[in-house]
Nucleic acid binder design. Structure first.
Length: 416
DNA sequence: TCTGGGGTCCTAGGACCC
DNA sequence: TCTGGGGTCCTAGGACCC
């Protein structure tokens, strides 16, 4: 049996932790640049604020209903997430952190399951203060469905739902819309509706040949899982296979130099993460986009992959590749709104045998180590390349909560 | 004025090799 | 005049996730 544990409205719940007056009030969290809504408390959902809603369109809704609005505070959410995961990991030797707010546990051999789930829930609530939901079932996909039921019926489920009989499995699948099955997105849902499939149960009744033909083996695995046969294993956490840094800009950028500065900075950020996980990279993808909302007809988006002749984690070398790529795809007289850098095609730094002739500059290694040490110590990117100047690109974060748990100067004060 | 960011996996088709 | 067949590797694009 597998459990899928999910933090309820995670980012909104994190903001509430340090501001209990917000309990029972609508709370939303905005994306970078305060662009759109990326998390909502139940109260905010009930106001009809959709996921991804542009913040400016809902300004009046926020005011009218006194919605507490926050700029995304990712360091805080990351820290709270770790605390939750540390507790969950004690409930099974085989656990998988699936996302910042979700975790799978292998609960083979554990009884009674419902009580086990209830205890997890109580402990996370008591020790961290974040509400969670627990779904337990014979496969990961069914556990996802069980979790949905736990959330949908909080009173009856008390936040925990177990699918442990054929009867409960069928009942759950007849209730669950096929659109809401884990792994079925908008495209597949449309195809399935056209084939008169509306519930998850309908989907399990489709001939395998149809599923294979229309949804590849991904769909076939999903079908198996919903029928109760495990087809998606627990994954051991590994290093990232790609590392991306991408941003929308606070305004439109025209000049090459401005864009070069951004691309260079993005590459540095990604390279720091690359070194932190002990990888070297052989490929750099750069992409740029104009503003599609402003001028749809002249919309321009392009990307390019630049290969390195040798694996490297040197910011200096990677920036050179990225800027060369940017040169190749940059067009004059456009208003760029977004850009990004993706590092991919990694090898392990420890396992890599240097080539006889073509190698990353060995001097860079020490330099990067020194830079990383300094920057980690200060928690900010104190040391950077000369042509990088983040200060001219102000990210809008007008409603940022404090770094309550990661900065000693921002601890919560309690007066007695 | 203001519309997110960071990931994974699978497949088809082209290039290339023998 | 006749113009194979099988394998691998690579890449772009599509689909999905939170």
């Amino acid at each position: 049996m597998y459990a899928l544990i999910d933090c309820n409205n995670f980012y909104a719940s994190c903001e509430r932790l340090f501001n209990p007056t917000l309990n029972n009030c609508p709370v939303v969290v905005l994306s970078n640049n305060d662009g759109c809504v990326i998390a909502r408390s139940n109260e905010a959902k009930r106001l009809g604020i959709p996921m991804g809603a542009p913040a400016f369109e809902y300004r009046y809704t926020f005011e009218r209903h006194r919605v507490a609005v926050f700029s995304a505070n990712f360091p805080l959410y990351g820290d709270i997430s770790q605390r939750v995961m540390n507790i969950l990991a004690t409930y099974s030797p085989n656990w998988e952190v699936y996302s910042i707010d979700e975790c799978f546990l292998d609960l083979s051999g554990i009884e009674p399951l419902r009580e086990y789930g209830l205890e997890m829930r109580a402990r996370v609530n008591r020790w961290v203060g974040i509400p969670i939901s627990v779904g337990i079932a014979p496969t990961k996909t069914l556990a996802k469905a069980a979790n949905r039921i736990a959330k949908k019926f909080p009173n009856r489920s008390e936040g925990v739902h177990v699918i442990d009989s054929e009867e409960l499995r069928v009942k759950a699948l007849k209730w669950l819309l096929v659109d809401d099955v884990w792994g079925i997105g908008r495209r597949y849902a449309k195809k399935l509706h056209a084939a008169a499939v509306h519930t998850a149960y309908d989907f399990t009744q489709l001939p395998e040949s149809w599923v294979l033909k229309n949804m590849t083996i991904v769909g076939l695995r999903l079908q198996k899982e919903l029928r109760g046969i495990p087809a998606i294993e627990m994954e051991i956490p590994e290093k990232r296979q790609s590392i991306a840094t991408t941003r929308s800009f606070d305004r439109d950028y025209r000049g090459f130099d401005e864009l070069r500065e951004r691309v260079s900075t993005f590459t540095s950020i990604a390279a720091e993460k690359l070194r932190a996980q002990g990888s070297l990279c052989r490929r750099v993808v750069v992409f740029i986009e104009t503003n599609r909302f402003k001028d749809e007809t002249n919309f321009y988006a392009n990307r390019i992959t630049v290969k390195s002749p040798f694996p490297t984690s040197s910011t200096l070398e990677l920036v050179n590749y990225a800027v060369a790529g940017l040169k190749a795809i940059f067009l004059e007289n456009r208003e760029y709104k977004r850009a990004g850098v993706v590092l991919m095609d990694f090898v392990d730094a420890n396992e890599y045998q240097p080539d006889l002739f073509l190698n990353s500059n060995p001097k860079h290694k020490k330099l990067m180590e020194a830079i990383d040490t300094l920057n980690n110590k200060h928690g900010k990117r104190l040391v950077r390349l000369a042509n990088q100047d983040a200060s001219i690109h102000k990210m809008r974060q007008e409603r940022l909560s404090k770094a309550y748990t990661t900065d000693i100067n921002q601890l919560l004060e309690v007066r007695v």
